[in-house]
Amino acid sequence: MQQLKQTHIIWIVLTVAVLLPLIFPLKLPLGPSPEGEAAYSFIDNLPQGSISIMVLETAPSNEGELWPMALAVARHHMEKQHRIIMATFVPDGTMYAEKIRALAESDYGYVYGKDLVILPYRAGGETALASMADNIRAAYQQDHYGTPLTDYPLWADVKSIKDISVISCYTAGDDHLWLARHVWAKYQVPCISGNIALSTPEAIVYFKNGQLVGLISGVKGAAFYEQKINMPGLATQSMDAQSIGHLYLLLLMIGGNIVYWKQKKDGKNGKQGAKKNV
């Protein structure tokens, strides 16, 4: 019961600490992001009419990190008048694709089928992506709405994956690895990965080796991208909250040690004392 009370206090303080900066923004500096800069520059330098594929591996569970970056990159493509194909290997991905379509049509005058197409959800994860890379026209015959893709002028310009100027993915999983294996290694199509911050230490290796032309990492990467395209959005808003959240975690680390040393001095030894890992 004692531990439960302590845990509840930790959680309540966390809620307040994260909410306050959302209400009263602190406008803290962001810091550099060379890998985000590389992603931005690559897309920015693509000529008008280039075709890009956005792989939306976004789901409600990770949208806090992935959706703002997908939205920022989509806006950037639209600003530059690139054509966009959206694909997904998670069931929820098409829902986010629909949102991007609505934005493209309302704010940028995109025409579905000519400037933008949504491919249907495909089960199979890595193998589905490999199929798309090996033979995109065989892997997809209809769009998300069941219309034959051959009805669309955009599809006429897609004979193989090599007709794509850049593939970007927004993932909480290993899509960056799949892109490196099945798209970059086999067809040398440039790839950008948008990852949750947690998988950045692995994904950054692929960026540094040149297998990814850019990397957008977590909320910080998304906020950086929003600022690059001069459209501060969801990520920029939540960066202050994340800063305070990190500071709070740091305080907890210190507090936990004070309590631990006090308990040690008093000779107490709870369940945590018996833990083997640390």
Binding site: L28, D240, H246, L247, L250, G256, N257, Y260, V278
Partner: peptide, 30 residues
Amino acid sequence: CWRAFRIRNWQAAVLMVTGAVVLLGQVGIG
């Protein structure tokens, strides 16, 4: 976090210091 970063030995101390630096370095406050 409250439990995991307790300094039981020098390795745990290294873990805590690196954890703290990375936590701060990832956000603007750092």
